[in-house]
Simulated scan of single mutants.
Amino acid sequence: MLEALATPGLIWVVAATFVAGLVYGFSGFGAALVYMPVATAVVAPPLAIGAFAVSALASLVTLVPRAWHQADRPNTLLMVAAAILAAPLGIWILRTTDVTVIRWTLSAITMMTLLLLMAGWRYRAVPTKPVRAGIGAAAGVMMGSVGLNGPLVILFQLGGPDDIGRSRANTLIFLTLSSLSLVPLMMLQGVIGWEAFWLGLLLLAPYGLGTLMGRRLFDPDKEKVYRRVAYAVVAGAVLIGLPLWN
């Protein structure tokens, strides 16, 4: 724990975690999109990814119980399982790829996701179970390699026919459960140690507080307002996290 308190730039990681939780609580997405660009500008990507995965424990208490009753549980859990099975490939990529390449990839994926969301991308076909499993697996690879399990799933959910309540619930459950699986998977490959675990515990409080505040702000009738705020925060996080500022 003392080692985690001595993490250089800890205050910025804590601040990013709180804002990430706030955005996640009211929009149902965007936590990693906000957190990762900022955190990886301060600490190594494996440590940032592992710590944030631990902080996802807060969502089990603050967000998942309510979302569980609204979600399409069978299909969402299918995607979670596919993500967990595919995540080791992503972790291997993280372990063998240069840090700067990972940070540029992270920023590019985040900005592309943001632009597609702002453009209102939609699809018409009803997704089959193999398609859902494929989306989950691809998200798992991204989760393990750059810490972003959300972009593909967010586009998939928001681009479909579900109302905002169910779409938000599906996304919350997928992101929370898949993120929690990262810690043991990364430890098994030797990518992170106990430092990430202790740092993640420190982030539990700011993340949990942010998600609670965001959940109270959520109002389905003001969907456009909240999405616009979330988009603005994500864009700011991308600019802050660009490797150009090193």
Rank of each mutant, 00 (worst) to 15 (best):
V238S: 06
L177D: 04
L217K: 09
R95T: 10
G136K: 12
L199G: 05
M186E: 13
R132K: 14
A230E: 07
A32F: 08
K224M: 08
G190N: 13
V191N: 13
S107Y: 01
V101Y: 07
D72M: 13
D221A: 11
G9A: 02
S59Y: 02
V38L: 10
V61E: 10
A83M: 04
V238E: 03
L117G: 02
I93G: 15
L10C: 03
V19E: 08
M142F: 13
T96H: 15
V234W: 07
T17N: 07
G210T: 02
L180G: 00
L47Y: 09
T100E: 13
V64H: 04
G90V: 00
T128C: 00
V23W: 00
L106A: 02
A137V: 04
F29Q: 07
D162T: 07
A125I: 12
L185I: 12
F218S: 06
N149S: 10
V42G: 02
V238N: 09
L22G: 00
L185M: 06
L57V: 00
R216G: 14
F52S: 03
N149C: 15
H69Y: 13
D72Q: 06
L5E: 08
E195W: 12
L199A: 10
M1S: 15
M142S: 14
L204A: 15
T76G: 02
P8D: 15
A48F: 13
G144R: 14
L201W: 07
V229E: 09
P65R: 06
I84D: 01
A205G: 03
A16N: 08
W68P: 10
V131K: 15
G160N: 09
G140S: 04
P74W: 12
G25Q: 02
P243C: 02
R122S: 13
P74Y: 01
R103Q: 10
T100L: 15
K222R: 13
R95N: 08
A169Q: 09
G210W: 09
G136Q: 05
